[in-house]
Each structure stands twice: as C-alpha cells, then as structure tokens.
C-alpha cells in the first residue's frame, strides 16, 4: 500500500470534524541526537493518521534535567520557551512518555497568579505521547506494518504512571502483522535509567537494569520494544554488554514499518529512509 493511499484511509477514520489537525512534533533530545529514525517514524504515523506535522524550530529539551535537580528557575525558563515554541498547534505529540510527562509538569512550575500558568495548563491539555495520541485522540487503526518475531514490551515509568500509557501501545502492536508479544515479568518495574540517576548512582542503576535484562531474556522475546529512548538506550546498552542476542527498538519504528534501520546499538546503519 502506498503512503498516500494509507493517508486517505486514515483520514476517513478521523473521529472528529477536524480532518487535518495541525500537530507540533516534540522531537525530544534523544530522538534528535541518537535516533532520528524514531522522530521520522513518529512523523510518518502522524501523517498517516491525517495530521499535518510541523517541527517548531524553537524547541530544545523539555527541561527535565533542571526540574529533577531542583533548579526551578531554569525549569521555568525552558518551560516558557517550550510553551512559546508550541503556541498555535492543536496538538503537541512526542515519542516519549517521559518528555511529554515533563510538559505536563509545567503548570506546577508557575504560581497561580503568573500568566504563564494558564499557558502551561493549555499546553498540558494539548500534549500527548504518540501511542496515546494515535489511540485515544485520533483513533488511528490503519497500522500497516509487519514484524517477524517475538517482542516484549517495557512500560516506561512516566508514560505508565503519569500519563496512563499501558493499553495503547499493546493495542497498536496487536495490529502489526506476524508480531507476537510475550509479556515479561515485572514489565512495569523501572529499568534504572532515571535520567541523571543512572550516572549519579551508576551501581544502583546497574543492579536495576540487570534485573530488567534478566526479565527481558526470560520472556523469550528476540526484540525489546518500548516507548522511551532513555530507557531503551539503557536496556539496549546492558543487553549488548551482557552479550545477549536481543534487539531493542522504539515502538514507533515497528508501527511505522521502519525496521530496516539497525536496532538500537546495533552495527552498521543506513540513514533513515524516512517517508
């Protein structure tokens, strides 16, 4: 099926009257720098679901490093910058529960009498993690992808507990041809990444990710799938160090049928043949 035909089908399934919502892509630092193919896959899915996607120039990081280090002033600066960058978009969507979760914390950064508070609340109401957006907002069902193999899915903490991302990725994955999902034990337990935590407390983080890779390998899956690159880099890095023959991929790569790029941390790659 060509992408234009897929687009047509997708548009007919849009639940509301706004046929082509304008979406600002929140790229996220890690996708930008480490794995652009994840951002391209996100764009592909959004466009297939009938959205018009733009990538605001003014965005950088969501501000999580400052927020989690107790630096309120820097967090507020970055929050204001991000709010401005995404002004005017009907939706803000990103391939990370953690970074979108951070956008949802912006209202807490401003006091009630600060005019930015309302703008932060407004941004919060418009921003979604990608699987959540596809499932809950645009009701996108036309997944046109195949994946040969057994996967296991890691629920990243912020997406799961802050945003309620749990069934959405599984629902979408169930539409991928030939894909088998083997749930691992403790799929909801933190992998030990935790942003700066993994370098501030490396040996504790290592204990946590070692537990995780054990559960992953016990699941019998040949591919680990998740929705957050931070966690995936952590787990993929550990799987590689342990010499385990398990690949790691972001869920959007599978949903967008873009698994021709090497998996995370794998050798050799071709530049993303996106779109």
């Amino acid at each position: 099926m060509t992408s234009s035909r897929r687009l047509t089908i997708a548009m007919t399934t849009m639940p509301n009257n706004r046929k082509n919502p304008k979406v600002g892509l929140f790229v996220t630092c890690l996708a930008d720098m480490f794995r652009p193919s994840v951002a391209f896959a996100t764009v592909k899915l959004l466009e297939a679901s009938g959205c018009v996607v733009e990538v605001p120039e003014k965005q950088t990081c969501c501000g999580q490093p400052a927020y989690n280090s107790g630096d309120k002033a820097t967090t507020a600066d970055i929050a204001r910058q991000t709010i401005e960058a995404f002004d005017g978009y009907e939706y803000v969507v990103g391939p990370s529960g953690s970074c979108i979760g951070m956008l949802h914390y912006y209202p807490e950064v401003f006091s009630d009498d600060d005019p930015w508070k309302q703008r932060a609340l407004d941004l919060k109401a418009r921003s979604y993690e990608i699987t959540q957006f596809l499932t809950d907002i645009v009701n996108f069902e036309q997944i046109n992808a195949a994946f040969e193999g057994t996967i296991t899915y890691h629920d990243s903490c912020s997406g799961l507990r802050q945003l309620g991302v749990k069934d959405q990725p599984r629902k979408l994955l169930s539409k991928v041809e030939n894909l088998t999902l083997n749930e691992m034990e403790e799929a909801e337990t933190c992998c030990g990444f935790g942003g700066t935590f993994c370098v501030k407390y490396p040996d504790i983080s290592n204990r946590m990710v070692s537990n995780k890779t054990q559960y992953i390998s016990d699941s019998g899956a040949s591919t680990l799938v998740g929705g957050d690159l931070g966690c995936l880099l952590n787990m993929a890095g550990k799987l590689k160090r342990e010499g385990k023959q398990i690949e790691a991929r972001h869920i959007v790569e599978i949903l967008a049928d873009m698994t021709d790029t090497p998996a995370i941390g794998e050798a050799e790659y071709e530049l993303a043949k996106a779109l």
């Binding site: 720098m33 480490f34 794995r35 652009p36 193919s37 490396p202 040996d203 983080s205 290592n206 990710v209 880099l233 952590n234 993929a236 890095g237 550990k238 590689k240 160090r241 790029t261 995370i264 941390g265 790659y269 530049l271 993303a272």
Partner: peptide, 9 residues
C-alpha cells in the same frame, strides 16, 4: 562502566 553506549545514527 556497566553498559555499552548505543551510538547516535
């Protein structure tokens, strides 16, 4: 020290 660093694309 504990894990490989996957390289950027």
């Amino acid at each position: 020290d504990w894990r490989d660093m996957p390289a950027p694309q």
